[in-house]
C-alpha cells in the first residue's frame, strides 16, 4: 500500500517538475523572441542614437550580453536558491515586488472564488431542478450573460454607476493593505471581487448544472425519496455531495486562473496585483520580473491542483 502511494507520489513529482521546467523555458524563449529588449524599452526612438560602446555597456548592465543559455541558467540558479532577480529600472528585488503584489491577487482570488462558487452552484442547482423549464431558462441566460460580457464592460459599468450615482469611489484612493485599513481594503476589493466572481460563476454554474442533472437521476436518489426523505434534504445532502467533484475541479481551475492575475480588472480598479506586475514587466522587458512572476503563478497552480486532489479525497470515500 505504502509502495503504491509512494510510486504514485514520485510520478506526480516528476510530472510537476517537468511541467514547471517547460514553462520556465517557454517564458524565457518567448520573452527573447518578442521584438525589442530592455534597452529599446528604456530609450525608445533614441536607441538608434546610442553609440556601440554605450549599447555594450548597457547590455552588460542589464545582463543581456551573455549567451542565452548562460542567462537562463543564471536565472534558474537564482530562482531555485530564492533569489528572484531585480527589476533593473527601479532596482527593486522581484521578491519584494511579489511580496507586495501576491497577497493582493490572492485576496482578490479568494473573494472572487467564494462569490463565484456560491453563486454558480446555487444557480446550477436552481437550473437543474427543472431542466428545460423556466428556471433552467433563466439560469442559462445568466450563465451565457456572465460568460459573454467582458470584464471591462462590467467593471466600467459598476465604476460608472457607483461613482456617478452614489459618489462612491473606494478605488480612487491608494491601495490599502488589509492589515493597514481593513475597511478600506474590503471596500476596494468589493467591486473587482464581484466582477471576477460573476466571471467565475458562469463556468461553475454550467458544471454544477450538468453534474446535478446527472446525479439526480441516480438510483440512490430514488432510494432516498423512497425512504420518505424530504425534497430539500434529498437535494442538498444526497445530490449536492455527489455532484461536488466536477464543481471542485472547475473551482480549482478558475482559482488558478485568478492567481495568474486579472490584468484588466486590476488595471481598472488600480489594484497592484500579480497581473499588473507581469504586464509592467513585459512592457519594460524586465526579464527577471516576468520569468520569476510567471513561475510563481505556475507553482501556485500546481499547489492548487494538489489541494484539489486532497479535497476529492475528503469528499469521496471511494478514493481515500
Amino acid at each position: 500500500m505504502l509502495r503504491v502511494i509512494s510510486s504514485r507520489f514520485r510520478s506526480k513529482v516528476v510530472s510537476v517538475c517537468t511541467t514547471l521546467f517547460g514553462i520556465s523555458v517557454f517564458v524565457f524563449v518567448v520573452l527573447r523572441v518578442i521584438p525589442g529588449d530592455a534597452i529599446t524599452s528604456s530609450f525608445g526612438q533614441d536607441t538608434s542614437n546610442l553609440t556601440p560602446a554605450t549599447i555594450k555597456a548597457l547590455k552588460s548592465y542589464y545582463g543581456i550580453d551573455k549567451p542565452l543559455l548562460l542567462q537562463y541558467l543564471n536565472w534558474l540558479k537564482g530562482f531555485v536558491t530564492g533569489n528572484l532577480g531585480f527589476a533593473f529600472h527601479t532596482g527593486t528585488p522581484v521578491t519584494t515586488l511579489t511580496a507586495n503584489s501576491f497577497p493582493v491577487t490572492l485576496e482578490l482570488a479568494l473573494f472572487a472564488s467564494i462569490i463565484g462558487v456560491t453563486l454558480g452552484t446555487l444557480m446550477g442547482i436552481y437550473s437543474a431542478t427543472q431542466p428545460g423549464g423556466r428556471r433552467d431558462f433563466f439560469g442559462q441566460i445568466f450563465g451565457l450573460f456572465a460568460l459573454a460580457v467582458p470584464s471591462f464592460v462590467l467593471s466600467t459599468l459598476i465604476v460608472a454607476v457607483s461613482a456617478n450615482k452614489f459618489h462612491y469611489f473606494p478605488n480612487g484612493y491608494e491601495y490599502s493593505k488589509p492589515w493597514q485599513n481593513l475597511s478600506l481594503n474590503l471596500q476596494q476589493m468589493m467591486y473587482p471581487s464581484i466582477v471576477l466572481g460573476i466571471a467565475v460563476a458562469a463556468p461553475v454554474m454550467r458544471t454544477a448544472r450538468s453534474s446535478f442533472i446527472e446525479t439526480q437521476e441516480k438510483d440512490f436518489v430514488r432510494t432516498a425519496i423512497g425512504k420518505g426523505v424530504n425534497e430539500r434534504r434529498v437535494r442538498f445532502v444526497h445530490v449536492l455531495r455527489n455532484s461536488m467533484n466536477p464543481i471542485v475541479t472547475m473551482t480549482g481551475i478558475q482559482f488558478g486562473y485568478l492567481l495568474g492575475g486579472a490584468v484588466i480588472v486590476e488595471q481598472i480598479f488600480s489594484l497592484p496585483g500579480m497581473g499588473r506586475q507581469i504586464l509592467d514587466g513585459i512592457m519594460k522587458r524586465e526579464y527577471a520580473t516576468v520569468q520569476s512572476s510567471v513561475m510563481i503563478v505556475a507553482i501556485s497552480f500546481v499547489v492548487i491542483n494538489l489541494v484539489t486532489d486532497l479535497i476529492y479525497r475528503k469528499i469521496d470515500p471511494r478514493i481515500r
Binding site: K218, R222, V237, R241, N242, P317
Partner: peptide
C-alpha cells in the same frame, strides 16, 4: 450496487 448513496 447503485441504490445506496456512495458518500454516506
Amino acid at each position: 450496487m447503485t441504490s445506496l448513496n456512495p458518500m454516506m
